[in-house]
Design a protein around this nucleic acid. Structure first.
Lengths: 212, 212
DNA sequence: ATCATATATGACAGGGTGTCATGTATCATG
DNA sequence: CATGATACATGACACCCTGTCATATATGAT
């Protein structure tokens, strides 16, 4: 988290710093983005940066959260107010994300690099809601998601349910990351996600009559 | 790939460099491992390193391939000579890996850090056999794996089969990475993999009578 | 008016990477 | 053997980065 000092900065200065950061993160992959460049772009002294942020990851996470705010909210909404089954929830989340991406196509470069960079740093998907260093992307509230209706599911234990969630999470994550890498192929990735969901569906559902 | 110059080095010198590298990779996470340290440990001049390797990743990949040689071979064997269904192949690969890990528990630290580090760099699982920067872990020969018997599977198209493979790959990868992070919990991760395989199995199989 | 507290600043220490000009060995060949 | 080409070795160098800290300045409370 940025310090309160940063958050209390006059808006124009704050924005100019964030803008500089977006510029740098747009230009180069996350690992290569340098604080040096950012402070040059923003024309602030080195010390100030460390007055405001802990390090690069702190800044990047903050930027990402800003970007992802809407997406996350709609994801949480999808979880809290499920229209269909649990599979549909994950598809909905994907759709919301893809929609957001195509809408704000201009400023996506920075987000893309941050997402991909942080995705690497955060490592492979851990237990839901407990990623290594705080929330990332769609590590949804495990309480809410665990309270979802399981009646139609062919899972006998919590362990099985957790595994199912991990599978779904991982599918979603892959689809989202791929979409970030190549927004123009969103349809393709949605299709793949759909296929995957269907594959897992017919194992996770008690009844095997349902199609698509 | 290391240069031929490196490969033609007298064995003791070569080994001492690799040993130095293993030491460094054991000590710190991949991102923090430094060429500087390695050349100090190996007592070779800076220039020599770059005569032998392109960069850190080059060296790390080489080391990993050495480590993974057996595992990969047994994985390929499992693919070429499937005992059971395709799900069993992936389970077999996991078992081989876990076995190898518990056997060579001493020198695993370096391998662990490299695997986890490179896993991050290589990013999320791509299409089988076409990872971003060459083969990593279990990116199996897509030709061989695509020629596996699909009769008992409920997949109608190549696209569906590919998706299934991606799911299985991703499950396996997660299990392996987790096992690397915490070898002592291998049993737990195997159990989870088994549950996941079962979940996907009952959707991917035409007949839904089979248990476990 | 005074003092404590918050904020700003940039020089600095410490570390890292990749390159390159300059050596030194090796080896084929006239 | 002499000579020139080719491969290998070396470490100083240029350049980049990060995080800290002593010092300076503003802010605000008493």
């Amino acid at each position: 988290m940025p310090t309160s000092t940063f958050l209390n900065l006059p808006e124009d200065k704050r924005e100019s710093i964030l803008s500089a950061a977006r510029k740098e993160f747009s230009n180069v992959p996350y690992a290569d983005a340098s604080i040096n460049k950012i402070i040059k772009y923003a024309d602030i002294p080195r010390g100030s940066f460390y007055m405001y942020f802990e390090d690069k990851k702190d800044l990047a996470t903050f930027l990402m959260n800003g970007y992802m705010c809407h997406i996350r909210k709609s994801a949480e909404h999808a979880v809290s107010n499920p229209r269909g089954d649990i599979f549909d929830v994950f598809l909905q989340i994907y759709d919301n994300t893809a929609k957001f991406l195509s809408k704000t196509a201009d400023n996506t470069a920075a987000l893309k690099n941050i997402i991909i960079g942080l995705h690497s740093e955060f490592g492979p998907p851990g237990p839901l809601g407990k990623p290594p260093h705080g929330k990332f992307l769609f590590e949804l509230d495990s309480e809410k998601i665990k309270s979802l209706n399981r009646d139609s599911l062919n899972v006998k234990s919590d362990a099985e349910f957790s595994c199912l969630l991990e599978i779904l999470s991982s599918m979603l994550k892959t689809a989202v990351i791929m979409t970030f890498k190549n927004v123009s192929d969103a349809k393709k990735y949605r299709k793949q996600l759909l296929i995957k969901l269907n594959l897992i569906k017919h194992g996770a559902l008690k009844n095997n009559e349902d199609n698509l």
